[in-house]
Design a protein around this nucleic acid. Structure first.
Lengths: 223, 223
DNA sequence: ACCTGAACACCGTTCAAGT
DNA sequence: ACCTGAACACCGTTCAAGT
């Protein structure tokens, strides 16, 4: 534990170390009592910078989104490509920190980075030709699809790391052994389920939504 | 606390009371120390029926899915309608117990009811004309879309109940107040965001996926 | 076989006290 | 202003003991 000068503890360093701690030792290791010492400080010192644990969690989520946003070129002229870039970057950022991602992916962050993401998606909707009510509706489909898939993928990866937990998606090892007479379809498709590429799935779900946006927006398109 | 005979504590009663307790007092009230007395029993007695808290949680999730499945008519001949019925029933079951739903919606349950859901969706894929690898791929899009939206909606409702928490999706109250120069699109669309009907959104996302399934399956359709 | 009660090893958060 | 240390009110889980 490095010695610490008095004013040297910052929110951003706490977030960074918390992220590392949770990723290295698992989400359940993310406690003030372990985080303090990891920062070279008393467990309660962190509470001088974050009101409570939830505020720390949301800040960590914001950090993941910031990382994703940094990879997106806002000058990219094609709105579909802009959404793809955002989606892939978000997926990468969250999957790179799966154990933390599962803790924050389903949360509404209400932080800077989230607003920027919303603005980016809404900008794409507008360029696709969507306005008002319809823009809001399709925005939600896009945003929630991104959010949902990201959360899902993060869960899969986190579970892969936490070999201890009984949770999981080991279709090949578990589902194949089910009684074939009661679950004939699962039996049939099980070998393919285990080899489905998650990145391809993510792209596919994304394209379905973008197709819908394009179809509905084509009347008023600006490009 | 009703007096209890010795062998009278069952898994199904524990699940039922746990569901009620969590729904009435919030997810964080779902502890063995509170659940025991609610059942008229010592806190640790529940551990005689569930290995640990996680096993109890998965059993609660299974219970929600059972409720949903009971509403689906497996004899419905139209595969799209079967998926719609399943999706709506799942949505209803989870939204009816939002505080519990957020705890279990993103989990892989590996219980009876989950297998039945998978089998049902895969059956629909087969009837749509999808086989093997493609059936597996589109199954995942359908299942994950259902799962993700259910989790999302449950979160929104749970947050609505937990007025205490800072979390939420109060677009109308919060986002409108953002600096318009930095977030012009949010400013424009904010009023519509708050009035988007979630059930419609759910249906829309679902239809997009069903359209994709129908398009890819039309070659080998069985009907 | 099923349940209890004490004990163990943890939590987040508050708050008076230190520097 | 920032940090510490003790204290408070909780957790899940284990285990010897009871019936």
């Amino acid at each position: 534990m490095a010695k610490r000068e008095r004013g040297s503890l910052t929110r951003s360093e706490i977030v960074k170390v918390a992220l590392e701690l949770a990723e290295a030792e698992g989400g359940e290791a993310l406690t003030f009592r372990r985080l303090g010492p990891a920062l070279g400080v008393a467990p309660t010192a962190v509470l001088r910078h974050f009101r409570d644990k939830d505020e720390l969690l949301l800040a960590i989520g914001n950090q993941l989104l910031e990382t994703a946003l940094a990879e997106v070129d806002p000058a990219e002229p094609d709105w579909r490509e802009r959404i793809r870039a955002l989606s892939r970057a978000t997926r990468r950022a969250f999957v790179a920190h799966p154990r933390v991602a599962v803790l924050v992916a389903t949360r509404t962050l209400r932080q800077e980075a989230e607003f920027r993401v919303v603005e980016l998606i809404l900008g794409a909707m507008a360029q696709a030709g969507l306005r008002g009510r319809e823009a809001a509706s399709l925005y939600r489909v896009v945003a929630d699809t991104l959010l949902a898939w990201t959360a899902f993928e993060a869960t899969v990866h986190a579970v892969g790391l936490d070999v201890m937990r009984k949770d999981g998606l080991a279709w090949d090892r578990e589902y194949v052994v089910l009684p074939a007479d009661r679950y004939p379809r699962i039996r049939e498709v099980a070998p393919y389920l285990s080899e489905v590429d998650r990145e391809d799935q993510f792209e596919l779900a994304l394209e379905l939504v973008l197709d819908a946006v394009a179809a509905r927006g084509s009347a008023g398109r600006v490009d």
